[in-house]
Design a protein around this nucleic acid. Structure first.
Lengths: 344, 344
DNA sequence: CACGTACCCGAAAAGGCTTTCTGAATCTAT
DNA sequence: ATAGATTCAGAAAGCCTTTTCGGGTACGTG
């Protein structure tokens, strides 16, 4: 009873004609019966539906799409090798596209503009109804090279063209939240260790953090934000520097969870208790890193799934004719874990 | 000059008819010219190609698929929330499907059989030419619920039905390699800390390890393999237990990179030098964990991208009528890093 | 009894492309 | 010069579905 994939070609799939024949009606009637159109007697409709089921009829979406002028598919182009960002976005999008109505082509451009271009062409040829472009890093990226005749939504990384539709997470707000959380935990001497300084998002997070600090009447511990790279090693190194410069620090806001892991490591090594002596908060809420840390890492969640859902909604709206454009920032949220337990 | 997505519907895409008209030939001739068919004079062909370019013609894959009976698409159904496994597999598959010829629908079933079923139906309706099913864990999984009329290849997790086509990584071989590597590094007292004992793959890895140990005339340090969960916390705890039971251990083979991270942590805490006193090897070669570890973690790579490539090839073969079936194991490879430097 | 009105159903066109088959024109050979 | 062989272009069928529109039946009404 295994799948009976006939060699080369398989036995023709059952078509509406087959159903109509079995039900003893015309294909037009069969179509209307199956699609819930009105002009069919209840009894006839039942007969058709029964026939369709018996034959395991599944309408040919290609033919349908050809006729309708829209395929019911969208393309999702990513450059995110790890799938760290794309998969949640994809899942959110799948959610939003009420299951079954829309399917998603996932293409990985691997950061290569040529390959991206190529995928766009292929997808256009498949008549996707829209495109979601997920960038490799949160900074603005050049818009798609080709002029495409279908709606495009940029997710995670906005398009450089403000006339495009972009959905990103609010890095400023996220930075603010991180500090507000630390302040709420009673911290006063808060430092910030971030990553690659070429990332605009990193500076956004710092800006949010500074705003929140200012409002709390505090200054950045360590004198300034520490920029380096998005690695644990940098987190460790920067923490060591920081402890030397400002031994009284009682909280560290890390620019990513990877950095936060390094921070935790270095603090541990220096004999500082977390969160007793120093509280630590990360960014991204990458579960596998955050939950396995010791102690479990509080982190700012950038809500990728939601981002995907919103991107899909905006794409849908655009497909249906909405003409809204611009960059939309989605709020982050703090997921509190053991690394920032409030002081007693 | 932004994309000019007309509200609802956009201006009709250019069709072969347009090209034919501009070139002053019939659509039949235009088709033949563009597809490299023989019966067209060189000069006519050039004229058609020129017209197609001028009009930015891109053939409607829906129409083509409708006619050809195959859509040039495949479905990839996964349940791997993180995308940890699916994305590399997808990339491998994309590679194998010589770019442009085949596009991939990616669907996430989220471990839910109902949702999986649903996706299968949707994909069938879209007339995908084949299906790749990527499991959530490496153990055998039930075959697709529905009887599908197209070829299916199971990747990462094999189907329980030996009559299906499955591509998996060779866990026994991987376990063997891990130990062989440690032995090659001069280690004699090798322990094994693995994860969730309900994972058959974990036992496969142990089996391979035991084989290699036997051939080297060694026994497992710690008396037996330690099973627990796939977490850093377990890696730490098990290491502490191990050190108590068998303080002379000079190498630890961890069942996953996450566990290995915990192992490194605990060893560090216990004052053992890695790799000086104890060498550590992980499994999966999850870059973000392995390269950021201190020291960088040697790990057994399960070659997911290759797995995806092979899966795609097998699927292609099946689509073209090949009838081969059964489970195929792909070899792993050791990626040596700082945690296992040979003893001097 | 003739006619209007619902109510159902079916014929046919459309959507864009490929392919086969036919036909016309050019060329070769006798 | 004419029969036969090539070469190239076009007409048309077909893939599968949806939808419009016209026709048929049954029924109620004047």
């Amino acid at each position: 009873m295994a799948s009976q994939a006939g060699p080369a070609g398989a036995s023709k799939a059952t078509t509406l004609t087959d159903v109509a024949r079995l039900a003893g009606v015309s294909i037009a009637t069969a179509s209307k019966a199956l699609n819930g159109r009105a002009q069919v007697k209840a009894e006839t409709r039942a007969r058709v539906i029964d026939a369709a089921e018996r034959l395991q009829f599944s309408p040919n979406a290609l033919a349908r799409g050809l006729l309708a002028g829209r395929s019911g598919t969208v393309g999702l182009i990513t450059s995110d090798l790890e799938g760290r960002f794309s998969i949640p976005v994809l899942m959110g999008a799948e959610d939003a596209f009420g299951s079954g109505q829309t399917s998603v082509f996932l293409c990985d451009a691997r950061g290569d503009a040529i390959r991206e271009q190529h995928h766009v062409r292929a997808l256009l040829s498949r008549r996707v109804d829209g495109l979601i472009v997920v960038g490799a890093r949160p900074d603005p990226r050049p818009p798609l090279a080709a002029e495409v005749p279908i709606p495009v939504v940029y997710a995670y990384a906005p398009s450089e063209d403000p006339g495009d539709v972009s959905i990103v997470s609010d890095n400023v707000g996220g930075g603010r939240m991180a500090v507000e959380h630390l302040v709420a935990c009673g911290r006063q001497r808060i430092a910030h260790i971030s990553g690659d300084p070429t990332y605009g998002a990193a500076h956004d997070r710092e800006r949010g953090a500074l705003e929140a600090l200012g409002e709390a009447g505090l200054a950045l511990a360590g004198g300034r934000a520490y920029y380096g790279s998005w690695s644990e090693a940098w987190g460790r190194g920067a923490t060591r520097m920081l402890l030397e410069r400002d031994p009284d620090v009682d909280a560290i806001f890390a620019g990513s969870d990877q950095i936060a892991r390094g921070v935790l490591d270095a603090l541990h090594e220096a004999g500082r208790d977390v969160p007793g002596d120093v509280a630590v908060i990360g960014f991204d809420n990458w579960e596998v890193l955050a939950t396995n840390a010791r102690p479990p890492l509080t982190s700012v969640d950038i809500n990728l799934e939601h981002l995907g859902r919103v991107a899909a909604q905006r794409l849908f709206a655009a497909i249906d004719g909405s003409t809204r454009s611009g960059t939309e920032s989605l709020p982050c949220r703090v997921v509190a874990r053991g690394s920032t337990t409030p002081l007693d």
